[in-house]
């Protein structure tokens, strides 16, 4: 007759085997860990919702206020106002998708790159997340996915602002909702992946430099304030900006939200966004692994 101790021994060993033997159990373990990480991020975000709102509202609000409210009201505003140069459309309409793209991209930087710089830095908090029972690459993917959620909220905030702030009405109309949703999701995920690449490739103490060297150039040269088609007078620039993922975010949103404006072919946009998403995710995960696993 087995003793009580040996029975406990047997019970223990059988739970161990069922615990990490089968593939579904393993999938379940990963899913729950992933969900746990997501819940944690959600919890922290909802506690900091006021700073979050300020962060995502200020940039589009100020932009719209200055360029679509103050300038049209200024004396001699017609000369200052870029609206005059936008054949057939007003500047507010041009700005709407552009500001959504900027909001999406800034969120990617603020939600992934900046926190990562801190977590890799003095605090090494990242070790806590990395010790979760799921593959380390999934920790990086969770960061991208959560950042995408913030990007979508940030993009959505631009709509009401663009409706109320500008002096001239914005002509926005989504003809194709599925296309809009796909573009929004791809753009948001891509910006999270971009944040991951930046956060893992820059030394924590140099993260401030990133705004001058990466964020500003890709924003200003990202067809945010002008449609890509209007660059045709400068072919070198029109070709040059094609390596910038922000171009496809703003053009994609332009095609989806303000289809009356000139925009790139939607198929090309989707293909290029997908390409950048995959490329930046792979590079970002590689960087992440390099930083956390010695």
């Amino acid at each position: 007759m087995p003793t009580m101790e040996s029975e406990i021994e047997i019970a223990n060993s059988s739970t161990v085997q069922t615990g990490h033997g089968t593939a579904p159990a393993q999938g379940m373990q990963y899913t729950r860990a992933f969900a746990g990480l997501f819940l944690r991020d959600l919890h922290v975000l909802q506690r900091e919702k006021i700073p979050f709102l300020i962060r995502i509202v200020m940039n589009p609000l100020l932009f719209l206020f200055v360029f679509t409210y103050i300038m049209p009201h200024m004396s001699g505003g017609a000369v200052l106002n870029p609206t005059a140069q936008m054949a057939g459309a007003n500047f507010s309409t041009v700005l709407l998708p552009g500001l959504m793209a900027v909001a999406i991209m800034f969120s990617g930087i603020a939600a992934v790159a900046l926190p990562l710089a801190q977590e890799f830095g003095i605090t090494r908090e990242i070790d806590d997340r990395v010790m979760c029972p799921l593959p380390v690459s999934a920790v990086a993917i969770e960061k991208i996915v959560f950042s995408a959620l913030q990007s979508m909220i940030a993009a959505a905030i631009v709509f009401p602002l663009a409706y109320y702030v500008p002096a001239t009405p914005v002509y926005a109309h989504v003809n194709n909702w599925p296309f809009f949703m796909v573009v929004l999701a791809l753009a948001s995920l891509t910006s999270g992946a971009l944040g991951l690449v930046i956060g893992t490739s820059v030394k924590p103490q140099q993260i401030g430099l990133i705004f001058g060297t990466v964020v500003m150039p890709i924003t200003f040269l990202g067809c945010v304030y002008y449609p890509w088609a209007k660059l045709d007078a400068m072919p070198w620039l029109q070709r040059g900006v094609l390596i910038n993922p922000i171009v496809y975010m703003s053009e994609g949103l332009r095609a989806a939200v303000t289809p009356t404006l000139p925009h790139m072919n939607p198929i090309v946009i989707l293909l290029m966004l997908t390409f950048f998403l995959v490329f930046l995710t792979v590079v970002g995960i590689k960087g992440f692994l390099r930083r956390v696993i010695g």
Partner: peptide, 19 residues
């Protein structure tokens, strides 16, 4: 390596959820 954005309670609570 405690999670600076979470309280002590949350640190342990979320750890349990991760697992």
């Amino acid at each position: 390596t405690l999670d600076r954005a979470c309280t002590i309670y949350e640190n342990i609570h979320f750890h349990c959820l991760y697992f």
